[in-house]
């Protein structure tokens, strides 16, 4: 069995084993705690950079859990793409925008919010309950899910095995995702691009200030050819803090 992180996956399990070795158990609980705490911090932190970093920590924890689940290549990708790529993009954007958070919680609709949180909690509890029931020893569903005891087969979760899937059974989704990525790249460029004149002036301003000399750029302005919404610009939400 090729393994990227031999330390955590050395324990070869024999079929029928009931008690887990202490190492993986401890590893699971530590990683789970890391993941959950990281996620909660990411959601609750006021500081954006702090939130991003907490999320990165959470993703590292997830990568560790993937290793425990013999998904070695996926763990690597999780670290590379998520923690290394996507989250860096987040950090980059956060730093570029450099915004202070006035009030982190969207409390304007308390009732709706409470309803939503209640629904989310119900979903978590219920899904957790169901997934618990679906796990090994969970009865009918578990048996229907063809859950197997014992260690995974040779080569499980390796690059070669994954690649095998991607170039046979998953060829079409694989190609489709590649097209999706191209579209996303082009779309991101188009969306983030700005006309030179606007960009220079807007980004020179201190954060949270509105440049009254310069008309605020509005998508409708381009359509209508109307410039110079000075008065309106001052009243725009988010512009007058």
């Amino acid at each position: 069995m090729t393994s990227l992180l031999p330390l955590l996956s050395t324990a070869q399990v024999t079929p029928g084993e009931v008690e887990a070795p202490l190492g993986p158990q401890v590893a699971f609980w530590v990683l789970a705690a890391l993941t959950v705490v990281g996620a909660m911090l990411a959601v609750t932190r006021r500081n954006l950079i702090g939130a991003v970093m907490s999320l990165v920590a959470s993703f590292f924890g997830l990568a560790g859990l993937y290793l425990l689940l013999s998904a070695h290549f996926l763990a690597a990708i999780q670290v590379l793409v998520y923690a290394g790529g996507i989250m860096v993009l987040f950090v980059f954007v956060v730093m570029v925008l450099n915004q202070e958070e006035a009030e982190p919680w969207a409390l304007r609709h308390v009732f709706g919010l409470a309803l939503g949180v209640a629904a989310a909690v119900y979903l978590a509890v219920r899904l957790g309950q169901l997934l618990w029931a679906a796990g090994p020893g969970g009865g009918e569903l578990a048996s229907r899910l063809r859950i197997r005891e014992g260690a995974p087969p040779q080569g499980y979760g390796t690059v070669a095995a994954i690649g095998d899937y991607f170039f046979t059974e998953f060829l079409f989704p694989f190609e489709a995702v590649s097209i999706l990525l191209v579209i996303a790249v082009v779309g991101a460029v188009v969306l983030a691009r700005t006309t030179v004149a606007k960009a220079t002036t807007v980004y020179e301003l201190p954060p949270g200030e509105v440049d009254l000399r310069q008309p605020q750029h509005d998508a409708r302005d381009e359509v209508l050819g109307v410039l110079g919404h000075h008065a309106q610009a001052a009243n725009r939400p988010g512009g007058g803090h």
Binding site: A11, Q12, E19, P24, Q25, F28, A32, L68, G135, G137
Partner: peptide, 11 residues
């Protein structure tokens, strides 16, 4: 390697 019963925790 974890025993099967641990998958519940994962889920």
């Amino acid at each position: 390697m974890l025993p099967l019963s641990y998958f519940n925790y994962y889920l």
